[in-house]
């Protein structure tokens, strides 16, 4: 199977501290891959590097065998990689509908066009409506994103991420702060929306991780200490010591 994302010898230093240390990782096309590890391990930093938000200090990142490290985020996004943020990052003064529509435009080929009436683009309307239904916010369509509840904003965050139809999706703790019921719904949603796509997900909820992931990598102090199937990770002694602990395993 071909690889969707490949990290080769990635290092990231902030000033003098090294946050990511020689990370090598390959995520196969169509795989659901979970990235777990303690707080401050560097999971979000890794997402920032992959999505072009930050430059690696050294090493290279490949998206479907093409080097993307060094490209700006919008170039990487146009090549089919989309990410969500751990801290909700939406267009707060715009309605839910407008938020999703903005996330659909580029992928649908409308770019910077200023000669088309946006309300007269049936396929944009259709795609936006579909995402709106998928994330269950139909009833909140015209509400400014900044006024949504926390769980609704998290759903919108996921919606914006998948709206463009990117086939590599990075989700950074999508269920953080959600209630049990909300988490279950979010996981079902993620499962459905990433069907047939590649998913790299950071998640602290182990039931989510073991239920969703085909493979798991464990990041501790900026290093990947183990990578494998859920069973392999569950049985890994190093992982038990460093992160999962006895009771979770």
């Amino acid at each position: 199977m071909s690889t969707a994302i490949e990290l080769r010898g990635i290092e990231k230093n902030f000033a003098m501290t090294s946050v990511i240390r020689n990370v090598n990782l390959a995520v196969a096309q169509g795989e659901r891959h979970a990235l777990i590890g303690p707080n401050g391990a560097g999971k979000s930093t890794l997402f920032n590097l992959i999505s072009g938000y930050m430059l690696p200090t050294s090493g290279s990142i490949l998206l479907r065998d093409e080097v993307v490290s060094g490209l700006p985020p919008y170039q990487i996004n146009r090549r089919g990689l989309s990410r969500s943020f751990q801290v909700t990052n939406v267009f707060a003064n715009m309605s839910v509908w407008e938020n999703l529509r903005c996330a659909v435009l580029w992928a649908a080929g409308h770019r910077y066009s200023f000669w088309k009436n946006i309300d007269n683009l049936p396929e944009i309307r259709e795609r936006t409506a579909r995402i709106l239904e998928d994330i269950n916010l139909t009833g909140r369509r015209d509400v400014p994103a900044g006024l949504l509840t926390y769980a609704e904003q998290r759903a919108l965050e996921i919606g914006i991420t998948v709206a463009g139809g990117a086939d590599v999706i990075l989700l950074d703790e999508p269920t953080a702060g959600m209630s049990h019921a909300e988490t279950e719904r979010a996981v079902a949603l993620i499962r459905r929306l990433t069907e047939g796509r590649t998913l790299l997900i950071v998640e602290h909820d182990m039931s989510v991780v073991f239920g969703l992931a085909d493979r798991i990598s464990v990041l501790v102090y900026g290093q990947i200490i183990a990578s494998g199937t859920p069973e392999e990770i569950r049985g890994n002694q190093k992982v038990k010591e460093a992160y999962l602990g006895e009771e979770a395993a």
Binding site: P73, Y74, A163
Partner: peptide, 16 residues
């Protein structure tokens, strides 16, 4: 409008 609200996020939906 999106750039006004959140120029950072705009980059992650394909726009410069």
């Amino acid at each position: 409008n999106a750039v006004r609200d959140n120029p950072e996020r705009v980059q992650f939906v394909g726009y410069d």
